[in-house]
Design a protein around this nucleic acid. Structure first.
Lengths: 242, 242
DNA sequence: TTGCTGTTAGAACAGTGTTCGTTGGTAGAA
DNA sequence: TTCTACCAACGAACACTGTTCTAACAGCAA
């Protein structure tokens, strides 16, 4: 192997980029990697460009702006959500399976909940997810307007419930949130009992629920509420379910 | 009235600030005014300092950082929320009254929902609000752990439901969100029916609910779900309710 | 008067998203 | 083959952001 001859100095040393050429897919993929590893605050256009061995301006040829980039990242991740094919006999369980899958995905990508806020998933994966979600909602015998809103309500629920679970992927030590809970608990119990009887009394229940039990409880509450709107099984108002 | 004599130029024209002296209260008050008028994105430390006729560095003598400032703004606004004194006979109605008040406050201060995200209201007004909320929850006969979580769940619900109602205070024209809804609706109906039967069928219901009806519906769903946990009235587990 | 403490503020730091203007390579037309 | 569009690439810069450093200053206790 002979060393490549150094370019003569009077000839501008134009280095043809030997790296993988830029593309929207590649940009989105690397952005997601940064998000997972270091969180949303670390995901700047400069940081992303650096990871791709280019300048920030180059990204704008493939992505309109950062907001669109986050749209794309969000949609990409939505492909990981598993939504059961409806089986009316198992409706409440299936809704919960869907929500648990959504939660798992949201928790396995750092800050994804923050990214998802006020973003309507209309990308290719998002639309497929919506279709399946609507199928599932309708399988429960919910009237159309209730079913439509239920999809939003449930997704919002998962978002807010995972917002503060800032764990990076994998089981991190549960010490930090627990210490924070203990701090709040001691604050609540330190309040004057005469003015805050309920807070003092409830300091325990307020701070003792961990993320997973909160989630399971919230799910159960909403599903029970939705069930009260279900018509008796049988009369379906057309439109297939797959 | 004699004009004040201009300071001689060889004497450094030190202008003693004739304006209202800085204080945390004043800073928070002006910050809230900017938030209401121009939204969260317009609320920068420089903008705030300018409004107070000073430099951004001066603010940091009264406020640790922007995050603490937003904590203070949030707590200030929470004083406007009206929480009914519990009357067990009217429990579901009272919960709704509380939530409607919360919604009104969130909507009457631009971007307040965004500010409130992942902020636990532990300021003076926030704690009083929590106390009253807990009193209300317990009056419904909910077990302690359910009552504790219900407070969070309901507040989160109002937050997410008001996140996109970016109306400035007062009844603004409802044209913008309605146009956006129409846009989404036409997109959904344009999808291929064979692959998206449910989305096409549901395009109407999905896009026809306005903010208020969504809110009323969501409230009803959650309250119904919570009611299923209520113990039969009578056995209270101590601790006063005011 | 002398310190001292805490407020005021200009300047600056390190970062942000985005745009401008210029390159350079290449695909298509002549 | 030659010329010409076109467009990705990208250094530099713009207008910001939150925050800190530093020095000067005011009010007040000793």
């Amino acid at each position: 192997m002979t060393e490549p001859i150094p370019a003569p100095p009077w000839q501008t040393p134009k280095k043809p980029p030997p790296r993988q050429p830029l593309s929207q897919d590649l940009i989105v993929q690397v952005a997601l990697r940064i998000l997972d590893a270091e969180g949303l605050d670390a995901l700047s256009m400069r940081r992303l460009a650096q990871e791709l061995e280019t300048g920030p301006a180059s990204l704008y040829a493939h992505v309109a702006n950062k907001d669109e980039l986050l749209d794309l990242v969000y949609d990409t991740v939505l492909s990981e959500v598993e939504i059961p094919v409806p089986d009316p006999d198992r409706w409440p369980e299936q809704v919960k399976e869907y929500l648990r899958s959504l939660r798992t995905v949201f928790r396995s990508h750092r800050d994804l909940a923050r990214v998802s806020i006020s973003r309507i998933p209309l990308g290719p994966n998002g639309v497929v997810g919506m279709e399946r979600t609507m199928a599932l909602m309708r399988a429960g015998g919910l009237p159309d307007d209730i079913a439509a809103y239920a999809g939003d309500l449930l997704a919002s629920f998962v978002t807010t419930e995972t917002l503060d679970d800032a764990f990076p992927a994998g089981g991190t030590d549960p010490a930090t949130p627990r210490a924070y809970a203990a701090q709040i608990r001691s604050y609540l119990t330190s309040l004057p009992v005469d003015r805050f009887p309920n807070l003092v009394h409830m300091a325990g229940p307020i701070t003792s629920l961990d993320s997973e039990r909160r989630f399971e409880l919230g799910m159960e509450i909403i599903v029970r509420g939705l069930s009260t709107y279900a018509r008796p099984a049988g009369q379906d108002s057309s439109a297939g379910s797959g």
